[in-house]
């Protein structure tokens, strides 16, 4: 049984009168996993992160991190988690190194240890050569990497990432993904991230919570989420058009339905990439040949549409959030 790192129980956050940003959500995050919050702007993702990192206090309910309550043990929570906010928070007038050193000071890390640690972290995010330059000279990708390094300065066991690749170009995004994967694989960290990029949730997260209007609609692994709306589709054709292999194919484990439409078989499966080779082997063993094969995978986009009834492109957010996001996106592209 895996250890619970984050445990959220009936957590709600209201703003002013009647605006419910987060509505009685409950979930657990286990050690060593990447847990993703997927939803459009204004769905309650950032509010949840802010409550979990003690920036906002919950209106009702509670959450614990390593058993420390965000309401009652805020100082202990702060000391044990790392945060990479959505915005670029590093001070532009200072160097990358000085920014990290300032944060290390605030975590109370002794100077000598801090300097060595920062050198290692700068190395990890490949910023060593730029560490002594002012942050205002950094590109968007460098800023994001610096934020990542700063978030790790207290060597947290759990790291919160709010929209870690917002506004980054495809190449830089892939690089940031690799760092995140490295943290999970090499350092056994637990990561909680929010995103509104479906492909990001798909390629990084072990489990995804779909959140909309402050409520969690579904929590599952990306592959199970996709499977839940029907699974992958394999289409294939064999050299003998007159034989019907449907009954034979149905017996393969993991196959849901097989339909023969004119010359082609349309097969619904759970995971196409592992079943397709089995089908080829099976068909060959019966003396036939596969002449055509294609696989279609449902995307999280369809999953999202299925569960929320709307596309992820429709966005609702407050003016302040949008302003902050625009600033991040502008700097990302510099």
């Amino acid at each position: 049984m895996k250890e619970k790192v984050i445990s959220v129980r009936k957590l709600s956050k209201f703003f002013g009168k009647g605006f419910v940003a987060v509505d009685a959500i409950s979930f657990d995050v286990f050690t060593g996993e990447i847990f993703g919050f997927l939803g459009p702007n204004g769905a309650g993702k950032t509010t949840t992160i802010k409550v979990l990192t003690t920036l906002l206090s919950p209106s009702s309910g509670d959450a614990t991190i390593f058993g420390y309550s965000v309401k009652n043990d805020a100082a202990k929570v702060r000391a044990s988690v790392g945060v990479v906010p959505q915005e670029f928070t590093a001070d532009e007038d200072l160097t990358g190194f000085d920014n990290a050193l300032l944060m290390a000071d605030l975590y109370g890390i002794p100077r000598k240890a801090a300097k060595q640690r920062i050198a290692e972290l700068m190395d990890l995010v490949e910023l060593s050569s730029a560490a002594k330059r002012k942050v205002s000279t950094y590109s968007g990708g460098m800023r994001r990497r610096l934020e990542l390094a700063i978030g790790l300065v207290n060597h947290p066991k759990v790291l919160f990432l709010d929209e870690p690749t917002l506004g980054l170009d495809v190449q830089t995004r892939t690089a940031v993904w690799n760092y995140i994967k490295k943290l999970k694989n090499d350092y056994k960290m637990t990561l909680f991230m929010t995103t509104h990029y479906l492909e990001e949730a798909d390629s990084l997260c072990d489990r995804v919570a779909i959140i909309d209007h402050g409520k969690i609609i579904k929590i599952d692994s990306p592959s199970d989420l996709k499977a839940s709306i029907g699974g992958d589709i394999i289409q294939l054709a064999i050299n003998d058009k007159n034989t019907d292999l449907s009954n034979l194919l149905k017996k393969v484990k993991g196959i849901k339905t097989v339909k023969k439409i004119s010359d082609e078989y349309r097969i619904k499966v759970k995971a196409a990439e592992t079943i397709a080779p089995k089908l080829i082997t099976l068909i060959s063993s019966k003396g036939y040949q596969v002449t055509k094969l294609s696989m279609t995978k449902p995307t999280l986009d369809e999953v999202y549409l299925e569960y929320t009834g709307r596309s992820l492109r429709e966005e609702e957010a407050s003016a302040g959030d949008m302003m902050a996001q625009r600033r991040t996106m502008r700097l990302s592209r510099s």
Binding site: T54, A75, A79, V81, P85, E87, T89, Y107, A324
Partner: peptide
Amino acid sequence: RFGFLDKLLTTPV
């Protein structure tokens, strides 16, 4: 405005 204050508040200072 730039989120620096929020970042400070996530530290145990």
